Amino acid sequence: MAVQYIPVEALQPGHYVSALDRPWVETPFLFQGFEITSHNELETLRTYCRHVWVDCERSRVAVETASRPEATCSDLAPLKRQFKDGLEALGQAREMALDACTRVNTRLRKYSQLDLDELAPAVTELHTQVTAYPQVARWLLTLREHEDTLAEHSVNVCTLAIMMGQALKMETWQQAEMALGGLLHDVGKLCLPPRLLSKQAPLSSTEWKQIQQAPVYGHKLLQDCGLHPRVLTMVRNHQERLDGSGFPDGLRGEQIEQPVRVIGLVNAYDAMTMSRPGFPAMSGYRAMLELARQAGHRWDPELVQSFVLLMGIYPAGTCVSLDNGSRAVVVDSKPEARLNPIIAMRRGNGAKTRWNLTDLSLPRHPRRIRSLDPPDWDHSRLMRFISDQLLAA
């Protein structure tokens, strides 16, 4: 089969498009492979794609010979410098927050007491470093290395809440409250039997009712600890949904305040992208599709849109295959080029494996994302290897 790679500007009715430079599911086209029959289809292709593959044998119109564009070199040194500085500074801030969260959880579990003075410095430092290094913050969310998974999840939700607060241009005090709400949102799980949280088999109706009471337990655990009522509301209501399908109170619509909606959204994203007993991790891309599918029902559509702009269609850490068969991992995305992110591209195998940093958004870069791969069997180890060997080099 003779297949020609051409820019969408060179397409004509009668050309048979066999592949796109992006996944088919991200376009309005129902079939994977079709003949262009109208100018409307041409305009749609030009809206969604930059290049396509045309099957010359199945086309009714001749395909002009076009050479594959050459890549333009990009100076990615500033990005690498930012990652080198950020991995150290933000990494230390995350460890500080993780340690503080672990200590607080231990105290709450044993004595039902919270020392806000212990949490405040950690939250403040995390806020400072996330603000300084947002690209690095997105990358570090992919590293699942802490033994205390509850603390790690809490710090991730705290980080995402800070980033969303900034994306939404919230006041600093609102960002601080959401950061604290994100860090403490799941403390009610400390009151549940550990076997319930680690159970791999489906939960019984009785067990599910226990799980649904976790936000209530968290609210009770914290209500005498000096927290602002708005933070307590985030803890109690972060599992509520716009359509009333959430818990524990079945709130809906405007009954759920915006900061609570933010915590609920970023909590769901991080939960979907982490491995749990009986639930393998979902890729960031698949998690984004799931959130988008439920926008307007379970989730605030404007918040989902803001979250996609913040994280990218291919969030950091997403494993992909390129159109030449190479494997790659997404490092970061630019808002203006969400379909063509910065990636670490794999070269070689085994001990000879190397990862090269490249920017797919360059005007004449020849490579495009062809498909998504499931997360590596030891995804955190892969992310750490890329961090140490490439980004921090």
Results as ranks from 00 to 15, higher is better:
Q32P: 14
Q32E: 14
Q32C: 11
G33M: 14
G33K: 15
F34K: 13
F34Y: 12
E35Y: 09
E35Q: 15
E35T: 14
I36S: 13
I36A: 09
S38P: 05
S38N: 05
S38C: 01
S38M: 01
H39C: 03
H39V: 09
N40F: 10
E41D: 03
E41M: 03
L42Y: 01
L42M: 14
E43Q: 14
E43I: 03
E43C: 06
L45G: 12
L45P: 14
L45S: 14
L45H: 12
R46Q: 15
R46M: 15
Y48T: 08
Y48I: 08
R50I: 07
H51R: 15
H51C: 08
V52H: 02
V52S: 05
V54Q: 04
C56R: 13
C56Y: 04
C56W: 05
C56D: 12
E57D: 12
E57H: 07
R58V: 02
R58T: 08
S59C: 04
S59Y: 00
R60Y: 13
V61A: 15
A62Y: 02
A62S: 08
A62I: 00
V63D: 08
V63G: 04
E64H: 02
E64R: 01
E64M: 01
T65M: 01
T65W: 07
T65L: 02
A66L: 11
A66Y: 05
A66K: 10
S67N: 00
R68K: 06
R68A: 08
P69S: 08
E70H: 04
E70Q: 05
E70T: 02
A71C: 01
A71Y: 01
A71G: 12
A71P: 00
T72L: 04
T72R: 07
T72E: 02
C73F: 08
C73V: 10
S74T: 12
S74V: 04
S74H: 11
D75L: 07
D75H: 03
D75Y: 00
D75S: 09
D75P: 00
L76F: 06
A77V: 09
P78K: 13
P78I: 06
L79F: 02
K80Y: 00
K80R: 13
K80H: 07
K80C: 11
R81L: 09
R81N: 02
R81D: 07
